[in-house]
C-alpha cells in the first residue's frame, strides 16, 4: 500500500491537486514534482485539496513555501482546502494562515480564482 498519493484535476483555469495519506520528508518530493510540473505548464492557479491528507510534517509544508513565491509572481496562487483539524493544526502552529489562503471547501477556493479573473478582464 502506498503511503501517499497525488491526483491532479484540471478545471476552468484552475488546477486542483488532491493529496492523500502521509506527507513527510519521504513523500514531499512527489508534491514538489507535481507543483513543478504545473509551473512549467504555466498553470499558476492552484488549489490543493487536503481532504484525504492524514499527516503533514515540516518537509511537506516546506514544499508550499518553495513554490508560492514563483506562483504569486505570475499572478497566481496556491490555495489550500478541506483540511482535517489535525492537519490544520500543524499549518496553524507554523503561522501559515497568515500567508496562505485556506478554505473549508474546494469550491470556495475555485470561486475566488474565478472572481479574481472576472475583475481582471
Amino acid at each position: 500500500m502506498s503511503e501517499f498519493k497525488i491526483h491532479h484535476r484540471s478545471g476552468e483555469g484552475v488546477s486542483v491537486i488532491d493529496l492523500k495519506g502521509y506527507l513527510d520528508a519521504h513523500t514531499a518530493p512527489e508534491l514538489e514534482n507535481a507543483l513543478q510540473k504545473l509551473i512549467e505548464e504555466k498553470k499558476f492557479n492552484i488549489v490543493v485539496n487536503c481532504k484525504d491528507l492524514s499527516y503533514i510534517s515540516s518537509a511537506g509544508l516546506g514544499v508550499f513555501m518553495a513554490y508560492i513565491e514563483d506562483v504569486r509572481k505570475n499572478r497566481g496562487d496556491i490555495k489550500l482546502t478541506n483540511m482535517s483539524p489535525k492537519v490544520y493544526n500543524v499549518f496553524d502552529l507554523l503561522g501559515f494562515p497568515i500567508l496562505y489562503e485556506i478554505y473549508k471547501d474546494e469550491q470556495d477556493a475555485i470561486k475566488k480564482f474565478q472572481d479574481a479573473r472576472s475583475v481582471q478582464s
Partner: peptide
C-alpha cells in the same frame, strides 16, 4: 521569527521550531 521567516519563504528551521512547540 516565524512571521518574518515565512514572509521570506525560508524552509529551514521549521522542524526545530515544531519540536520545541510540540
Amino acid at each position: 521569527d516565524l512571521k518574518q521567516h515565512l514572509t521570506h519563504f525560508r524552509r529551514g528551521g521549521l522542524g526545530v521550531y515544531l519540536m520545541r512547540t510540540l
